[in-house]
Design a protein around this nucleic acid. Sequence first.
DNA 1: TATTGGTTGCGGAA
DNA 2: TTCCGCAACCAATA
Length: 501
Amino acid sequence: MSINRHSFLLQCLHDLDQSLRGLGSRLFVARGQPEIVLPELTKKWDVSLLTYEGDTGPYSQVRDEKVMKTLQTLGCKTSAHYTHTLFPMDQLHTKWNKSEPPKSYQSFMNLFKSMGAPRKPVASPSIGDMPRESVEINMSGFSIPTLSDLGFAENEQPSATDVFPGGESEGLKRLQQTICARPQWVSTFAKPQTAPNAISPSTTVLGPYLTMGCISVSTFFYEVVKLRPKTDPPESLIGQLLWREYFYYSSFTTPNFDKMLGNAAHCKQIPWRRDADLIAAWKEARTGFPFIDAIMTQLRVQGWIHHLARHAVACFLTRGDLWQHWEEGAKHFEFTLLDGDYALNNANWQWLSCSRFFYQYGRCYSPISFGKKTDKNGDYIRKWLPQLANMPAKYIYEPWLAPIEVQKSAGCIIGENYPQPLVDHSVVSKENMGKMQAAYELQKKGGDVVMPDPTPLGFCRTAKDSAVIPSEENKDSSPSSSSRKMKLGPETFFAKKKAKT
DNA sequence: TATTGGTTGCGGAA
DNA sequence: TTCCGCAACCAATA
């Protein structure tokens, strides 16, 4: 995880600790391998019952299985509670009673409706509910770790938690401000009509708080229901929670949900490339498309971007422009996003790359036009890419078209202060549609996909991934930065357009 | 087998 | 602002 995600998690733990102290207890953080540390503590403290929040991700399932087996041999009872989704996944599975998960949102919604009402949120505990034993254990060494304990250097600082601080208190505050205090906004909410490039978020940003368990999905659900929304799923706020539930259920019933190979029954097999330079340029906001680079900068700094902004950059990396593997994009999002989530992240990357759930590859986001619909002046770009702050609105989405005099007076020479575009979108997007069609046809005929690069890249935590790059570095990004030396691919890449005079 | 619908496309014509 | 062509996807239904 990025330093931002770590920081968010640590703030969550501090907030939880504060709440527990208010109830006469405290939080104890045990460190180490769960399958080693938890049995040790169980013996040491003579624990008779361990309860935990169940998680349906494959990593957690394997881990929990190991821990629970060991604990049971020690005579410790265990009890899992699956409350991260509106319904426990095995309940949905029993009701659905088919081996293949629903292939459409409509089908899932029918299943959901047949389940009855989701469980109600549980009331907050009071002092009398807390086990007395926990305060009697005299312990040191169970404090909440610091960022430096976790291996981050002194000069590495989180930036996302300045804007979105972690913790239940902050989550409830945000729920109050964005949902409870805005009945009108909630009741007319339609997701596709919210702007991806609003300076101040056009959606709730409750995702990080749901992901980290600061507020429960049932609390969210019933606060919205209370306001009697007039809009319906899939676009309404309840509809958003149903998407979440649908993707959780899809991931629950699909082995290798985070991979293309080994997942051919559900995931389209497409010969994506893995070009380290192109992937790095995308991650580091050096694509030369201001809309894309602004989004990627907000992602790095704030650990959150609007859902449609995720669409734009995911389409750009995969089927739209760069033709890079969606798994690489998913890994970067999971590393960076405060609301990085196995089920939702991998589902959406498959959606955007037309690998599963959505297949209309003819519909392609333009890195130039899409943002203009909601931000004609490019204020969002100016905020995140200050080197373009003085570019006239006419050229802000395609600064390489600005005449050189305009570039000079804006103080931003394309190719020096800001990169040339990596590709010609109108050319590559059409070519990629042809590749999509060919891949679909091959799979239909039963042929095997041939990956251009059989050796997947490892996911390295590079300095640039984790460091918060000061804005000066962006400003100084000179022609000698690696984007200039990038070897441009064969037929697809950009022959520099001449500036219009 | 044909038809309809699908959370969130684009670009141009009317 | 609304509609259509683009080129033709998949899932569900009749």
